[in-house]
Write a protein that binds this DNA or RNA. Structure first.
Lengths: 148, 148
DNA sequence: ATAGCTGCAAATCGTTTGCGCCATG
DNA sequence: CATGGCGCAAACGATTTGCAGCTAT
């Protein structure tokens, strides 16, 4: 029987090893900070938080590592509808609701969507790995705002 | 019985009226040009084409009108995975396949996905209007490239 | 008439890059 | 000690803005 650990609880050194990344202080803090930011932060937002713990860190380093993390599958890139890159920890299966009015992004558990079609035999021999579903609509707050 | 016309065939003046837009020469050409660009063009690409018919047009005007069109539902904003805005005419129901390797985007007819869950009773009182589904995977070309 | 649109140029924003120094393996 | 990562500052591309003159309704 195999021990099961999520990426959140597994020690950071091990996670880096798994993804072929060198362990550095900056990366560790970056990762820890992202664990405390459950939303879909922009690089600037992550930078602001990390800076509280490593005041000398550079925005360029944050960008470089976010990209590295995305490439290696530690982070996932999220949705469009923003002028800037948004990321989230690559954890459990979920999708997003995007308000077409205020652009807010909310998580949507995959099971709230009901049964999804199987990913097979797509045109052009495309080999599918996963869905990224955005449900576009109006969030509750904007519905209220429009009524008034 | 009601006459059915797609947005592609309906005269431009009517389309503008429907969406509360003033009719201008620039907008008409912009729209016509987009009809001949079936992919997911960037503002620069649209600009280059429009410029052939209105040499004096400004890139700023293209941006302003693309945004206006998106706001009013004439155009749809497409996927991420690009460093720039991508749009397409808001015509028939389809989604996208995005190659995680080369970032190419291919259209995917909604019926190729099979039955989708109904959009109702989402958490937080979110009022859904439509899906935007990206199927992430590896395109045929990149599969070949990897094998070699 | 008048509100809205246009082109222009400058400004801004998010992101990337080159490079000399430093840390990790 | 050899790679690879870091911080800095400059560069860059994409997009936005302010404004003065023109256009559609």
């Amino acid at each position: 029987m195999q021990t099961f650990q999520t990426e959140e609880t597994r020690p950071f050194r091990e996670l880096c090893a798994d993804h072929g990344l060198t362990v550095t202080h900056q990366r560790q803090v970056l990762y820890e900070v992202m664990q405390t930011m459950p939303g879909h932060p922009s690089p600037e937002e992550v930078y602001a938080r990390v800076k509280r713990r490593i005041p000398a860190i550079s925005l360029a380093t944050v960008y470089k590592n976010i990209h590295l993390f995305v490439e290696r599958g530690v982070l996932k890139e999220v949705s469009m509808h923003h002028g800037s890159l948004r990321v989230e920890l690559n954890s459990h299966l979920h999708h997003h609701m995007v308000c077409s009015h205020c652009k807010a992004i909310t998580d949507l558990d995959e099971k709230d969507l009901g049964e999804l079609p199987a990913l097979q035999s797509l045109p052009g021999g495309f080999q599918a790995e996963r869905y990224a579903i955005d449900v576009i609509g109006i969030c509750a707050a904007c519905q209220k705002a429009k009524r008034s």
